[in-house]
């Protein structure tokens, strides 16, 4: 069994209005050094799979096809074998 942690983030070229709003409130709270805030998603997937290579292939595919929208988002992931 493998556990994948997938991080889906907006592309740099895409404005993140949530991030802008949070940055504003951080400034209001006195965190004036905050220069930028970008908000993304973290998805955890438990995957029954024979090999690490196969798990990587499947996680990449499902992230491209479902978990992220390639028009506006990028993704990265970490993979670990679990009992």
């Amino acid at each position: 069994m493998f556990k994948a942690t997938i991080y889906v983030t907006l592309k740099d070229s895409v404005l993140d209005p949530q991030g802008v709003a949070v940055k504003g409130s951080l400034h209001t709270l006195g965190f004036e050094g905050v220069r930028d805030v970008r908000i993304g998603k973290r998805v955890e997937v438990l995957l029954e799979c024979e090999s690490r290579a196969e798990a990587e292939k499947q996680i990449k595919e499902l992230s491209e096809k479902v978990l992220s929208n390639p028009v506006i988002e990028n993704f990265t992931f970490e993979l670990e074998e679990v009992a």
């Binding site: 895409v14 404005l15 209005p17 949530q18 709003a21 929208n69 028009v71 506006i72």
Partner: peptide, 17 residues
């Protein structure tokens, strides 16, 4: 339609949230 690729682009959160 955008998600399914029948139309190009994507729809995001309104810029004022």
């Amino acid at each position: 339609l955008c998600e399914s690729g029948l139309l190009p682009g994507a729809l995001m959160r309104n810029n004022h949230l």
